[in-house]
Design a protein around this nucleic acid. Structure first.
Length: 1078
RNA sequence: GCCGAGAUGGUGAAGCUGGUAAACACGAGAGACUUAAAAUCUCUUGCCCUCCAGGGCUCGCGGGUUCGAAUCCCGCUCUCGGCACCA
């Protein structure tokens, strides 16, 4: 017989499988029998496949093959994440087009992956840089835009000066470096596209509880999202000239300003002794004229602005400058307090301003101490002590308490004596009642008492440190004596009633910046018209039922817009109490002019007026913003007796749609009168951008809503029509980085845009972050050739969600979070009926070099899996990587280990020579028969649990046992081949064929064990005397407990160790042991 | 500083809801086959005392619960990962 030669058989079977289409996706999959196995999308780097990739593909493939044999309909596909920086950087160096580089690298990568023998459906292969792929990446961007989740904003961003691009927060290392090139990242003010992932913060948190992911990974996402509960509180800054002092809501002077702060401890507001603003806070520039030490302030702002993230970390000493000449008023007691700016307050978190409570916050304390600011305690820092005997404490209960509350435990004094120190008198009493038994309490003291002070505080500790715990409020007026929890509740209610603050939940998560000033990515499918954006606009405000031109947000907005030089028309419409839209439209047409720079802002009932107006006019206008509008009255006549009947509200939406460049619908998320559904319908009719918002006041009835109006009033910006996708990457591009997007200089790129959209319109020249490509690729696998949708409804329903996803830990707060976000957006938009993409997710462990260091060219310890495939065979590589240790664990490579696995496969090969055709009972021991069935059981269980290493160990055990037999029956050999086939498909297939089979082993069913054969007739009973093992006996499986006891007591070793004493107690664990206590 | 994961032979690691710690593999040692080497096969291999028999010790450290703890509880040490002036 021939030698085992993987080089020949592996190639042979790979071709055979492909020819027969054995890895094609089954057509008869249903939601119940399907399994979607997903290896993470790789970037095909020039260095090719590395050991970690091989681990992922091997593990997924073993699992997929196993599932197929179990009758599941498996989808397994492979693709490439082929947009991105490395190819572009290479292009800059060599002037070779990135498409060429990446296609070449991709082909090589695919070749390497194929050589591992993985059973993926190659017909569904996708590449994110192919136009029929990125067309849909662009489609997702438009979906986000239409739903108000994509917006453009100028703000400070992470800039890598070497890559010449903006980076997402997720792409900046903790040291403040660019993830890719390790250049120090700087902050730069730039206009950028963002995706509003923050909108989904709460749902991204909530969804984590429903998915099977590593607990650690979920925790990391929770931390990254960073939810804190607290309050936003308004502090008034009086004008300083009129001399009046505002208290709470009372407005003393029209020139008073307010600054909002966020705090998680609103209960400590009476301890606020100063405010601190971030140096970038816009309020500061606003107050330039009033700040007496402006030069000093400005110098400080400049100095801190130049600091990099890194500098900020190194510098621990607090710095800051007081804003002289102004002060803030504490809304709860009217006290005037100083305002400082300092860079320990971050502009990007909360409101960029804090109320400083130095007595109860370490950072504020350090700052106050340095600058000599007042410190006022408002939470009682007293510790209460209970002196007791250790023996009298019920530690179990005490530990229960310690899980939830602050209990300090200090041992001191004579032996066995100690005290409990508790921060809170009520809780202390509870502990005394519940946790201290028998002898009871020797005494109760508080830290105020002199005798106690020496017990627990050294001289050094007696000095005040900020006390951060939750306890009882003091020096706090109406909050006094309340516990922190109650005090928080009360102060929030108070502030809300006074309109000086509100409950607020703050997240650390920030919106995802997706623009890149790079060439090799999907173009952002937007067009802009600079002139239109700059033009002075003519705003037309159309108010609602029973309202006036100056009502709700409009008076504030009018003021703002006029300040910017725009013209605002905001007249009262006739008959606001009994509105008729035709009459109102006539009035508008008589008194206002429409032009191509007109923007209509309509509220509520005003929407009807806007629609009729657009029907009647021939003038095309720039934009229509519909705030909480409706296009047909939904309420009954009883509720709104004076509003026209719905039959007069019929509109020609085609005409309306043609009358304006763009429509935006802003809708109160919680609005009851006008349903969300109507807003969605209207958006569909108008092709409008739909932004759901939580206004500060219901139905946008009064408060300023700057964020949303800023975003919805923008003009000169358009999405590319869906039918015009993809926006193709042009070829005439100079890659050299200039800080401007390379697409800026492409003529080809802008060709035809003006013809189609009008003069002055141009394409957006930035490209999308590659993470956008990889946020949805698992949907494209379902239906990769579809050119009418990213995937058909039918395919989505059949295959999603992903049943098993294997990928790297480095993507926890990037790719994995973004993918969940995309999926939730698709769910909201009605494309899918689930909102978590990956049901079960695991990370492969990092594979280290043989020297236990990270594989790196620098150490010369890189293992190229393809080399190993060439020397030992793909089967060996697959099996070795699984045998190294648990899938999720970091583990070092060992060439000797590889040899060991190859040795094992050689052994299996040689086993074939001993195979004879007969029944198991004819020649072999019953033990081997039993071991075969036990192995089937164990391997099946381990594969379900992804414990590949132990499954392999068990199979090795079986093979070792088989090897000792002179002859083995064919049936047994087939069992082991079937078990091995997911791991080492090539050799299994070859041996299977050598047995005379003409069909592929991959089409066989997974073996089933016979439960009667895995039960041993005789079992070992372990004998213990006083908990120590003293011997063992072999007994029948069905021995009774009494018989077991009797037999055990007769055992010579037991007799010896009993030493003639009478057993006090005998414990029998059936089938396992007898434990005798004397 | 905060959050998380982990620590078992010379090495990678097994060890189920507490019940013979070290399965499987690597490495090492001895032997068989061979002129020799490679390959293969057999045996030994946690540590200590001992010719053997046998005994003692051992899962990072210290306690506790239990007839019995690698496993459960408490405290500590160290290693690795994440976050970090997030109010």
């Amino acid at each position: 017989m021939d030698q085992y030669n993987p080089k020949i058989i592996e190639k042979k079977w790979q071709e055979e499988w492909e020819k027969k289409g054995l890895s094609s996706t089954p057509v008869d999959a249903t939601r119940d029998n399907k399994m979607y196995v997903l290896p993470q999308l790789p970037y095909p780097s020039g260095s090719g496949l590395h050991a970690g990739h091989a681990e992922v593909y091997a593990a997924c493939d073993i699992y997929a093959r196993f599932l197929r044999m179990q009758g599941k309909k498996v989808l397994q596909v492979f693709g490439l994440d082929s947009f991105g920086l490395p190819a572009e950087n290479y292009a800059i160096k060599t002037n070779v087009h990135p498409r060429e580089t990446i296609n070449k690298a991709g082909e090589m990568f695919c070749e390497q992956v194929r050589s591992l023998g993985i059973s993926v459906d190659w017909d569904r292969f996708v590449r994110s840089s192919d136009p029929n792929y990125y067309q849909w990446t662009q489609w997702f961007f438009l979906l986000m835009y239409k739903r108000g989740l994509a917006y453009r904003k100028k703000q400070s961003v992470n800039w890598c000066d070497s890559c010449k691009t903006v980076l997402a927060n997720e792409q900046v290392t903790p040291q403040g470096m660019c993830e890719r090139c390790e250049t120090v990242v700087i902050q730069k003010e730039m206009e950028q596209w963002y995706l509003k992932i923050t909108e989904y913060a709460e749902r991204l948190l909530e969804g984590l509880d429903r998915i099977d992911w590593p607990e650690e990974t979920k925790q990391r996402q929770r931390n990254w999202i960073g939810r804190s509960e607290g309050a936003e509180i308004l502090f008034r800054i009086p004008c300083g000239t009129c001399g009046k002092k505002p208290v709470g809501q009372t407005i003393s002077c029209a020139d008073d300003k307010t600054v909002a702060v966020f705090t998680t401890r609103p209960d400590t507001i009476f301890g606020t002794t100063y405010l601190v603003l971030a140096p970038e806070h816009p309020f500061i520039q606003n107050q330039k004229s009033k700040i007496k030490n402006w030069n000093e302030v400005q110098a400080y702002i400049e100095k801190t602005g130049k600091k990099t993230e890194l500098d900020r970390q190194i510098e621990k000493e607090k710095t800051g400058v007081e804003l002289e000449g102004i002060q803030a008023i504490n809304p709860v007691n009217g006290e005037g307090i100083p305002i400082w700016i300092a860079d320990y307050v971050l502009a990007t978190y909360g409101t960029g301003a804090i109320m400083a409570v130095p007595a109860h916050d370490e950072r504020d304390f350090a700052f106050a101490k340095k600058f000599g600011l007042k410190i006022r305690q408002v939470v009682d820092p007293t510790e209460y002590f209970v002196a007791v005997d250790k023996a009298n404490v019920d530690f179990k209960k005490l530990n229960e308490y310690r899980k939830t509350i602050f209990v300090n435990e200090i041992v001191f004094g004579a032996e066995g004596q100690f005290t409990l120190a508790v921060r809170n008198k009520k809780i202390m009493n509870k502990i005394v009642q519940n946790c201290i038994t028998r002898g009871g309490v020797k005494g109760i003291y508080s830290s105020g008492e002199e005798s106690v002070q020496d017990w627990y505080k050294t001289e050094e500790e007696k000095e005040y440190r900020p006390f951060l715990d939750e306890a009882t409020a003091i020096n706090s007026d109406f909050l006094n004596d309340l516990e922190t929890k109650e005090a928080k509740e009360k102060i929030i209610q108070h502030l809300e009633a006074e309109r000086m603050g509100k409950r607020h939940i703050q997240y650390k998560l920030r919106d995802w910046s997706v623009s890149r000033q790079r060439f090799w990515g999907a173009p952002i499918p937007m067009i802009y018209n600079e002139q239109r954006a700059k033009n002075k606009k003519h705003y037309l405000f159309l108010h609602g039922y029973r309202a006036h031109g100056s009502d709700c947000f409009r008076s504030w907005l009018k003021h703002e817009l006029e300040k910017q030089g725009h013209i605002v028309w905001a007249e009262d419409l006739p008959n606001t109490d009994k509105p008729h839209i035709d009459e109102q439209v006539d009035f508008v047409l008589r008194t206002a002019d429409l032009s191509e720079d007109t923007v209509i802002v309509a509220h509520s009932h005003g929407g009807g007026v806007a629609f009729r107006l657009l029907e009647k006019t021939k003038q095309k206008i720039a934009k229509v913003v519909l705030v909480d509008c409706f296009y047909k009255p939904e309420f009954t006549d009883k509720k709104r007796p004076d509003v026209e009947k719905s039959d007069t509200w019929t509109f020609d939406f085609e005409k309306i749609r043609a009358a304006a460049d763009e429509f935006v619908i802003v809708h109160d998320r919680d609005e009851k009168t006008i349903s969300k559904k109507q807003a969605e319908e209207m958006a569909e009719l108008l092709g409008a951008r739909l932004i759901f918002e939580t206004p500060q006041e219901r139905h946008f009835t009064g408060a300023k809503e700057p964020r949303i109006l800023e975003e919805s009033l923008v003009t000169g910006l358009h999405p590319v029509s869906e039918h015009d996708l993809p926006v193709l990457l042009p070829d005439d591009v100079d890659f050299k980085p200039t800080g401007q997007s390379p697409l800026t200089y492409s003529e080809e790129f802008q060709k035809g845009v003006e013809e189609q959209y009008g003069k002055g319109w141009k394409r957006e020249v930035d490209t999308l972050d590659t993470f956008m490509c990889s946020s949805w690729y698992y949907y494209r696998y379902l239906d990769p050739h579809n050119d009418t949708a990213f995937a058909s409804k039918e395919a989505l329903k059949r295959w999603m969600p992903v049943d098993f996803y294997l990928g790297g830990e480095e993507h926890v707060n990037g790719h994995l979070l973004y993918s969940r976000f995309f999926t939730k957006v698709l769910y909201d938009a009605g494309y899918i009926d689930f909102d978590e993409p990956f049901l079960k997710h695991r990370h492969q462990g990092l594979i280290l070099g043989e020297d236990n260091r990270k594989m790196s060219k620098r150490w010369g310890n890189v293992i190229n899996p393809t080399d190993v495939v060439n020397t030992f065979g793909a089967d060996t590589v697959r099996m070795y990587e699984m045998f190294m240790g648990p899938l999720e664990q970091t583990k070092p490579w060992s060439t000797n280990g590889v040899k060991g696995v190859r040795r094992f496969l050689d052994k299996v090969w040689r086993l074939h020579a001993s195979v004879v055709r007969h029944e198991p009972s004819d020649s072999e021991s019953a033990e081997l028969d039993s071991l075969v069935h036990k192995t089937v059981k164990k391997v099946t269980k381990d594969l379900h649990a992804m414990s590949f290493n132990t499954a392999i160990a068990k199979m090795m055990e079986l093979v070792n046992a088989m090897q000792k037999e002179e002859k083995i029956c064919q049936q047994h050999f087939e069992f082991i081949l079937l078990l091995l086939s997911p791991f080492v498909p090539h050799i299994a297939e070859e041996l299977w064929a050598m047995l005379g089979h003409t069909t592929s082993i991959t089409l066989e069913s997974w073996p089933v064990f016979d439960p009667s054969k895995i039960v041993d007739e005789m079992v070992m009973l372990v004998l213990q005397v006083n908990g120590k093992m003293r011997g063992s006996i072999e007994v029948g499986r069905d021995i009774s407990d009494d018989d077991a006891k009797t037999t055990a007591l007769c055992h010579p070793n037991v007799v010896k160790w009993l030493g003639g004493k009478e057993p006090k107690k005998i414990i029998v664990v059936p089938g396992k042991l007898v434990s005798i206590v004397v």
